[in-house]
Amino acid sequence: MKPVRVYFNRWFSVAYHYMNLIRENPDGVPFTIYATHPDINHMSLQGADIAETEPELTGLAYVEFCLDFCRRHAIDVFIPRLHMLEISRHIARFDEIGTKVLVCRDTELLESVMLKASFYERVRATGIMPVPEYRIVRSAEAFGEACRELGDMGYRVCFKPNDSEGGLGFRIIDNKRDHLADLFGYVTPYISLEEAQTILAKASSFPDLMVMELLEGDEYSIDCLSDGEGRLLAAVPRRKAGGRLRLLERHPDFLELAARVAETFRFPYNFNIQMKYNQETAKLLEINPRMSGGLHLSCLSGINFPYLAVKSALGGKVPAMELEADILATHIEQPVIVQRREYQLPERFN
């Protein structure tokens, strides 16, 4: 059987696990994994069979690079992370060369997901789940007013850029910090309102900030698998259980939520819903229209999310699946040789 050619562009380090999960699939389908990254020694590339250096490009120039790569290597399935929106806008060009792309084709939806405020409003309009109380600010003065307003409503306050990924730029307002202890302690996300406002006031401009209620309860990451039409095939709720522990559990409310999200938005293939409790209410943090950073842990459920997404994209039949038992899981670092250089020993050692 001719190996299926799969390409990952610039991904996080955990793509190493996704590549191996695809390669070690239960159907015995052979794969050749291709990957690119600006750093040829990046961890994500260590899981690839063929790796190349990726140029630092944006916009259409980056799409052209990806198209050329897929064309040159006759790629069957492309799994993008970087610049997904631009790739989605030009998806027809990948169709023309016969490359299936694991990306949401609804560019309007994809764009709204990347701007948290617009997506929160979209979710609020559907009524399928609660969203946090928030304000969008563009000035230091508005920032201070929003923090005080939410504080007066009884919330602890946090903020992050409206257009960001993961924990980038996330800070928690705490006006009772011991600055000397902070100086000699670990780096933390905490900052006082006065410090934050002073920094923002000194800037001529800054990206839109989302000031929001701090959700302080249990955090869940729900890894989901849909077919190419957005029909849900599997969902695994994964709770942070302290330190590196993660509990994969059959949480009925979140399994139902995953079904509602799939039915409402029709995200194809792999997507992830992040929820966090404030007291008794779980509220949306964000939805990632791609494989999550902890997806390899959810695969301990026996559901091979990366491989099944590829299989579905290629027209294979993927049945609906469920988590069969609660699983407490963790992870450890794994040493990997990136390069090996042989040396000729001096004669005195021979």
Rank of each mutant, 00 (worst) to 15 (best):
Q274H: 08
T32Q: 12
S301W: 11
L183N: 06
V310W: 04
F119C: 02
Y18R: 04
L257T: 00
P289T: 09
L209R: 03
E165C: 10
G28M: 11
A74M: 11
E86R: 06
D27A: 13
N41H: 13
A140P: 04
Q339G: 03
G167T: 05
D163P: 00
C224R: 02
F143P: 01
R71Q: 14
V157A: 02
F206P: 06
D174L: 07
H42M: 08
H179R: 14
T126E: 04
L284M: 01
R156F: 10
Y134Q: 08
L300Q: 14
L225A: 04
A48C: 00
D208K: 06
R341S: 09
V4C: 09
L323Q: 04
L284R: 03
G217I: 05
S118V: 11
K100L: 05
Q274A: 03
H331T: 14
R260L: 05
D182T: 05
H37D: 14
V336F: 05
V63E: 02
G151T: 08
R124C: 06
V137E: 00
R135Q: 12
V261C: 05
D39P: 09
R138M: 13
V29T: 15
M84V: 09
C224P: 06
N175G: 04
G230W: 03
E149M: 10
R5P: 01
L247G: 04
M210W: 09
V310G: 03
W11A: 08
T107A: 12
L247A: 06
L233P: 01
F94V: 08
C224A: 07
Y343E: 12
E280P: 00
V123W: 03
F159R: 06
L295V: 15
F254G: 02
K283Q: 12
E347P: 13
L200R: 00
G185I: 13
E249T: 11
H251D: 08
T198Y: 10
I128P: 00
Y18D: 12
P268Y: 07
V103E: 04
R246H: 15
A92H: 15
C104L: 12
L180I: 15
P189H: 04
E141P: 04
P237S: 02
E141M: 08
